[in-house]
Amino acid sequence: MTQPTSNATSEFLLVRVSDELYALPSTAVREVARWRSPTPVPGAPPVLQGIISQRGVVTPIVDLRLLLGLAANAPTRATRLIMMHHENCDFALLVDAVLDLTALPPSALAPTPTALEASRARLLSSVARHGDRPLGILSIAALVAALQETI
């Protein structure tokens, strides 16, 4: 069996969150679905928009916009739910649009800038560029940890 090497190109799902671009490691993405109205959960933090049934399984919707400290607009035709799986956690990430699936070599990834606000920097593993726009590479482990800690 071939061991993955550190210089292997990885695939990412490019998403738009508010007016910013982010990339999710495709290994954690199970599927992409259209937004649908969730069942609200009274007393849950605002970042948890509610729950849906995804193929019969109760799945929480995490509003990535609020988690990143961005403005949450009303859902549009472009709004998507990205079904994620990380270790034992299944959840749906709400994003404003899914743009593309792209491959990024390690040479395209740069460390997270120190000037970036800490609440956002802790959710990123690195940064890159998509055309002339900055692209934040989300760390799913950090995202799950943030959700389990305080929200």
Partner: peptide, 15 residues
Amino acid sequence: PLGPFITPHLARPWL
């Protein structure tokens, strides 16, 4: 179950 993202963060354990 509502899962580890929701249950520990509920304002009240009513669900």
